[in-house]
């Protein structure tokens, strides 16, 4: 089962934009005033995807290990930067370091495990597999860590009295902040767990859909999907565990005192 993929003609892609025009018209009639945001969103999506299409074509033609690894490092850097931008409260330098290191370690481990043990690519840097799969692992880990980071920073702020109350009794910083760390772990893992629970019943995952449209057998697509999902769970949980294991420490000094935090982003 490897049928020719149905290519979309230029006018067909253009026709999809009619939906956006209808949306803009409805928004205008309803007086919701979001035309600008819809226009910017649609334009950005179009330009970004066209650009990434050409970049991927270039990378696939080159098939160079340095280019493949370089691309993954670049994606990883953007993901870390994105986490810094998406947190609700200011992050200390120490916490930023923990985020970057835990995410890099968790993702690197998952990617190596996945590419070399599960897929066993030949050549190992085959960009057609390496880049999109690494992208999925990085993207999902980014979402998980962002949730974990937000829950940790907000939890540490909102539960200061309780954390100090435990410190007053001689609890260790780890013990005092355990409740916050546990909640952050749950919040970080929940979207991935929900995705696994609903997969195949509530929705067909993107990669699987893509492979089926691309002509692959549904069974092959399912095999890939199961493997990638397990890779994502591993990466998210490892990154979040590492982050929480070291993240809470940045809130305490060597005298096991809670360090006062800034409450607003600059």
């Amino acid at each position: 089962m490897n049928e020719e993929i149905m290519d979309l003609a230029f006018w067909q892609v253009g026709a999809a934009y009619v939906f956006v025009l209808i949306l803009v018209w409805i928004v205008r009639v309803k007086g919701i005033r979001r035309e600008k945001e819809i226009f910017i969103g649609t334009t950005r999506m179009t330009l970004q995807l066209i650009l990434v299409g050409y970049i991927l074509m270039f990378l696939f033609e080159q098939a160079n290990p340095f280019l493949t690894i370089g691309t993954v490092i670049l994606m990883q850097t953007f993901a870390v930067y994105n986490i810094y931008q998406r947190t609700k409260l200011p992050l200390t330098t120490a916490l930023k370091k923990v985020i970057a290191l835990s995410m890099s370690a968790g993702i690197a481990f998952s990617i190596i495990f996945f590419m070399f043990l599960v897929l066993n690519l030949d050549p190992w840097y085959d960009p057609r597999y390496f880049i999109p799969i690494a992208g999925m692992i990085i993207g999902n880990s980014m979402t998980g860590i962002t949730l974990g980071v937000n829950n940790l920073v907000v939890g540490m702020r909102d539960n200061q009295d309780q954390i100090e109350g435990a410190l007053m009794l001689g609890a260790s910083p780890k013990e005092a902040s355990k409740m916050v760390s546990d909640q952050a772990f749950d919040a970080a893992m929940l979207p991935t767990i929900n995705a696994m629970v609903g997969m195949g019943i509530v929705f067909l995952p993107g990669m699987m859909t893509g492979q089926i449209i691309g002509g692959a057998s549904p069974i092959t697509a399912v095999e890939y999907q199961i493997a990638i999902m397990l890779g994502i769970v591993g990466s998210v949980s490892l990154s979040v565990l590492l982050f929480l294991q070291y993240g809470y420490r940045s809130y305490f000094n060597e005298q096991a005192q809670l360090i006062p935090q800034k409450n607003k982003k600059e």
């Binding site: 009295d161 309780q162 100090e164 109350g165 410190l167 007053m168 009794l169 001689g170």
Partner: peptide, 14 residues
């Protein structure tokens, strides 16, 4: 802190 133990004005409830 286990020898010099403090209790805050707002009681901490675990």
């Amino acid at each position: 802190r286990q020898r010099i133990v403090m209790s805050a004005q707002t009681p901490v409830v675990f």
